[in-house]
Simulated assay, not measured.
Amino acid sequence: MENRIRFKKVFILAGAICAYWIGAGFSTGQEVLQFFAVNGINGLWAAFVCCALICTFSYILWNAGNREKFSNPYNVFEYYCGKYLGQVYIWFSVILSYGIFVVMMAGGGATIHQYYVVPEYLGTGFIGILSLLTVLLGVDKLINIIGVIGPIKIFFVVIIGIAAVATALAKPDMLIQGSALMPQLGFKSASGNWAWSGALYAFLALMMSTPFQVTCGLKAANKCEARAGAITGGILFTIAILFLVFAEIVYHDIIVGQQVPTLAIANQVSPVLALAFTVIIVLCIYSAVASVLLMVVRKFAVDKTKKFNSIAVVLTGIGMFFGSTIPFDKLVNLLFPITGYAAIVFAVLMVAKEIRLKNGSDKTEKGEGNMSV
Rank of each mutant, 00 (worst) to 15 (best):
Gly99Gln: 05
Ile154Asn: 03
Ile285Trp: 03
Leu136Gly: 05
Val279Gly: 10
Ala163Met: 13
Thr134His: 01
Cys50Asn: 10
Ile12Lys: 13
Ile90Asp: 01
Ile143Ala: 01
Ala230Phe: 01
Ile152Thr: 06
Val373Thr: 10
Ile162Val: 14
Leu61Cys: 06
Phe11Thr: 10
Asn359Gly: 04
Ala276Arg: 03
Gly99Cys: 08
Lys171Glu: 15
Glu31Ile: 14
Asn63Phe: 04
Ile152Ser: 02
Leu122Lys: 07
Ile143Phe: 01
Leu244Met: 13
Leu293Gln: 11
Leu200Ala: 09
Ile326Tyr: 09
Ala352Asn: 11
Ala202Tyr: 01
Ser131Cys: 11
Thr232Ser: 15
Ile90Thr: 11
Phe346Asp: 01
Pro337Gln: 03
Phe26Val: 11
Leu169Met: 15
Ala106Cys: 06
Leu122Tyr: 14
Val272His: 10
Asn66Thr: 01
Gly86Tyr: 04
Pro172Gly: 13
Met104Ala: 10
Tyr79Thr: 06
Leu132Asn: 00
Phe300Pro: 01
Val135Asn: 02
Cys216Glu: 07
Phe336Glu: 09
Ile265Cys: 04
Trp194His: 01
Ile41Asn: 05
Ser97Ala: 15
Arg298Leu: 15
Trp194Gly: 00
Ile285Leu: 07
Phe126Thr: 14
Gly108Gln: 05
Ala14Gly: 08
Gly128Val: 12
Cys51Lys: 13
Tyr79Met: 08
Val302Tyr: 07
Phe328Trp: 06
Ala288Trp: 02
Thr364Phe: 08
